[in-house]
Design a protein around this nucleic acid. Structure first.
Lengths: 168, 168
DNA sequence: CCACCTTAGTTTCAAATGAAACGATAGGCC
DNA sequence: GGCCTATCGTTTCATTTGAAACTAAGGTGG
């Protein structure tokens, strides 16, 4: 079942109906627009912002887990984490059983910062989705979850690459 | 109307319900997975692939227009275009009225390559969205369009930044 | 206990990126 | 025509990126 090729059948691609393109395009534009909030006003990179947001939600995480949750490279995560620690927005503590892994959590300053950023991010999101009804919003999230499931199936036919949208 | 903050109201962010995060995450993972097709098998970068795909659809485009359509930086587009020309996948021709703009179009080799890539990309997409019914697929695209409209409204309250998904 | 393999996170290095400066053309406007 | 400003696309340069090598810590099997 394929709707990105309606008219000419073979070899024709209509990008408006090609999900990978549509998602990449919208996501890119949204990320870029949202970054104006956390980048310009709080001097955070995308990577830093994502890490903070996840730590806010999960209390404590390893760098490894953050890689899975955010789909970011481990080098990128490592660097962002160090920058956040330097700014004392998060703190790091070695696991006592396994000296390799280190647990990350928000530092007081990070919590303060988030209390400032998050409401703005939420307000901003609200403006964007103002075009959607409550039902449509829920439908959209539900459909994205379904796509994510299809994706997970392909990404790792038998291995779990973390399904961040379904934490429970 | 906001669903990313259910429980605690102020200052709490649940990422699973935060659209910018969900879109970025899914789009990133899809792009990454799809790139295995055009990168590994055809040695194309994302930028190159997007340009080819758009040229396939629109016959002829200026670099400027490609920037708008793909939400990519003009330096990035410039470089990708030159690489494509070097590989003789596309061709360039100056506009006779305006010597600044140059029109890009697929070269024979580019068309051949696309005839090879596109079916694979479509098949791959089909696998991903196999979890969706036809109706759900259409709904998803429709909802994304609505989000895009909300986004366009914020991006430029009175100026058109090209709505690639609604070409007509 | 000692090879050997795996895993967590860091670092290195080359390539990709984007902001800003640039060159070249075009379009007023006087 | 000469001057000012805007636009298309390229290039420069400093930063960011990610693949791969690396360090350090566990595990495992003999």
């Amino acid at each position: 079942m394929n709707f990105a090729t309606d008219s000419n059948d073979v070899g024709e691609l209509r990008l408006e109906g090609f999900l990978p393109y549509r998602l990449a395009n919208i996501a890119e534009r949204i990320s870029q627009a949202l970054s104006l909030i956390y980048a310009e006003q709080f001097d955070l990179t995308i990577a830093q912002w994502r890490i903070l947001a996840w730590l806010q939600q999960e209390r404590t995480l390893s760098a490894k887990r953050i890689c899975e949750l955010t789909a970011m490279d481990k080098a990128r995560v490592s660097r962002a984490v160090n920058q956040l620690i330097e700014r004392e927005l998060i703190q790091r503590q070695r696991d006592h059983e396994d000296q390799r892994t280190q647990w990350l959590s928000l530092a007081p300053a990070g919590l303060t910062l988030l209390k400032d950023v998050i409401p703005r991010a939420l307000d901003w999101e609200a403006e964007i989705v103002a075009t959607l009804s409550a039902t449509e919003y829920r439908d959209l999230l539900r459909l994205l979850s379904k796509v994510e499931k299809g994706l997970a199936r392909l990404e790792s036919p038998s291995h779990d690459t973390a399904s961040p949208s379904e934490p429970n």
